[in-house]
Amino acid sequence: MLAYAIQRIIVSILIIILAVTALFVMIQFVPGDPANVMLGPRATPELKEALRERLHLNDAFIVQVYYFFSGLMQGDLGVDLTSNRPVLGILIEQAPFTASLVASTLLVTLLGIPIGTYAAVHRDGFFDKASGVVSVSLIAVPPIVIGLYLILFFSVSLQLLPAIGAGEGFWEILLHLVLPTLAIGLTWIGYVSRLVRASMIEVLGQNHVKTARAFGIPNQRILRAYVLRVALPATITVLGVSIGFILSSAVIVEIVFSRPGIGKLMYDAVISRNYPVVMGTVLASTVFIVTATTISDLLNVMLDPRTKDEN
């Protein structure tokens, strides 16, 4: 298990290096001059050229990659072209907003497990059919649309929940998380419930479950010990992968709800060609996603050692 974990971590680091290098390549093809962004239209061409030199924008691609990674090794991700503040400091400020949104969305997503379980156990019943229709409908609607309707209903019409921002103080922060979390999470509740239902139905028909029933083991215990344990690994894998999707949805949702966070920071940075911030936010997202996927893989191996060979 330890060897597998080490191997998995090494692969993760390689993925992060590859992703960052790929981003550097992509940035080379994006039109737009960061010197214009930082200095504005009134700056002289000499000033702009001096800035390009300082940011190594005139250097060859490989030299820029070298400067980035050597800076990274020293915890230096460069400075925000607009405010001149260290990118690392900005990321540390913004990360909690996105992390709390992703965490609350994952928590909400877990609701899909009891819904899927109940639907599988009461297959073809009213709840199964109703949850099926609702789940598929939710999967089909993008978070941006759900978000806008949630705002219009809960914030504008009912004036119950805040539409924008992240709030300050414990309860305010919780209240500000409700709508963005639902905007992303509703889709995933539907998806996870469908997945759990399908896995459960498959496992419920397997011989070891039939045998357990024949021995008169209570139904609740069969579900917990013999069905869910086998059905869950697939769900955990999906939850691990879902973090990537949740994070990308967070970009949209942070814009729609005007929430601070890594996603909004990334969007603003791309629009303004603020490359050090773009690099920093992509690096942070990549590390986050790769870490989540690695943890879900390791959890899977713990729950079902057979998956180690498959991985």
């Binding site: 914030s155 805040p162 539409a163 924008i164 729609v256």
Partner: peptide
């Protein structure tokens, strides 16, 4: 001072009393 880049979203924030 609350930064809301999209005027349409800002209108919603106004209507929501924020």
């Amino acid at each position: 001072l609350i930064p809301i880049n999209d005027p349409k979203l800002a209108e919603v924030a106004f209507k929501a009393g924020q």
